[in-house]
């Protein structure tokens, strides 16, 4: 599965307003369009996952992820926050680009880890942050994913 197939206008936000780690998680969860109780559960689960080790992988990227019963298929979201958020990243630098990946505990297609791996690879592309900074609309983000072969 290619990353460009997973993203669309409804799960991408290039102007995140969040000012803290929890707010980022909540805004990312909102992009999945779940019901309120599912959102609450997912937030708790993502927080527990963060407690095991931050998903801020450095270079301005964070990839919060978890498996949860509240979803019945792989769900993803992307958001950009220009000012940067302290996400306890491994390089201690603020995070600006956030990918959220959530999957049910058991998936027939088993896309969760491969997709997580592809996102992590995408984040390692040289000059990717400057290209992400220049995006002005969601379509540009989708094109960037396609052009990167992710």
């Amino acid at each position: 599965m290619e990353l460009k197939e997973l993203f669309n206008a409804s799960n991408v936000n290039l102007d995140l307003e969040a000012q803290g780690k929890d707010e980022v998680l909540l805004e990312l969860i909102n992009l999945l369009h779940l019901d309120e109780k599912a959102k609450e559960m997912l937030f708790k689960m993502l927080k527990k996952r963060e407690n095991l080790g931050s998903t801020g992988i450095g270079k301005g990227f964070a990839i919060p992820h978890c498996r949860s019963l509240v979803v019945d298929k792989l769900n993803v979201a992307f958001a950009r926050q220009r000012q940067g958020i302290d996400f306890n990243s491994i390089d201690d630098k603020p995070a600006h680009y956030f990918f959220l990946i959530v999957a049910p505990p058991v998936e027939i297609s088993n896309y969760y880890l491969p997709v997580l791996g592809k996102v992590a690879q995408f984040c390692k592309i040289s000059d990717i942050t400057s290209r992400l900074d220049k995006l002005t609309k969601v379509e540009d983000f989708l094109k960037l994913l396609a052009d990167s072969g992710s």
Partner: peptide
């Protein structure tokens, strides 16, 4: 094997014991 995959992707899992507490 799964932990190794996570770590290869760049996710440190240095506080795994927190799961018991949760």
């Amino acid at each position: 094997q799964v932990v190794e995959k996570y770590e290869e992707m760049g996710f440190p899992l240095d506080r795994k014991e927190k799961i018991e507490e949760a």
